[in-house]
């Protein structure tokens, strides 16, 4: 049984983008804060901290979840993937990222990492979704810049091509 007192910091170890990392945290620390300020992975953004905007979406064991609605301690021992894992080590964008660039599917880019992570999960499970399914998943994210249309186009392009986004990492 894992038990941590409220005022006690504990060492939380997890795998972030393939690398084993650890840092100290109180039980109440949100995973979003732990990733950004504990582990230095600032690619994951915080937009509402009540689970509506989707900017903080990350993968835990391959499944897209809101990191603001997850405690850091809950991710202990898990595989966490964030937007920093998507591009190749030389910086080459993966097909999903490239489609976002090619369709002008981002402007300020703040909501984008969460959307990329949602679809990394979703397209791995459903490589060829319908547009309705894409819209359904995208409706779990708020974007204020684009009006969404180009995001849908970008994802449609990835979905219609034979390869789903790379899922290593």
């Amino acid at each position: 049984m894992r038990a941590v007192k409220g005022d006690q910091k504990t060492r939380i170890a997890l795998t972030l983008n393939g690398r084993k990392l650890a840092a100290e945290a109180e039980p109440r620390l949100l995973l979003s804060d732990f990733l950004r300020h504990g582990l230095g992975a600032t690619g994951t953004h915080v937009g509402c901290e009540h689970g509506v905007c989707g900017a903080c979406t990350v993968l835990i064991d391959g499944v897209a979840v809101r990191s603001c609605l997850t405690l850091a301690v809950q991710a202990e021992g898990r595989e966490v993937r964030t937007v920093e894992s998507l591009a190749a080590p030389d910086g080459a964008l993966n097909p999903l990222q490239a489609a976002f660039r090619d369709h002008h599917a981002l402007q300020c880019g703040f909501c984008t990492p969460g959307i990329l992570m949602s679809f990394t999960d979703f397209l791995a499970r459903n490589p060829q979704p319908s547009e309705a399914q894409i819209r359904e998943v995208l409706s779990g994210h708020l974007c204020r810049c684009t009006g969404y249309a180009n995001i849908v186009e970008a994802i449609k392009e990835v979905a219609s091509s034979s390869h789903a986004p790379r899922s290593e990492g």
């Binding site: 915080v46 920093e84 591009a87 910086g91 981002l106 880019g109 990329l116």
Partner: peptide, 18 residues
């Protein structure tokens, strides 16, 4: 192509809280 995109798509943006 936008100059901004590669960084923003890779989690390498530099926003105020980063």
């Amino acid at each position: 192509r936008r100059k901004e995109d590669a960084s923003l798509l890779s989690g390498r943006g530099r926003y105020a809280d980063d």
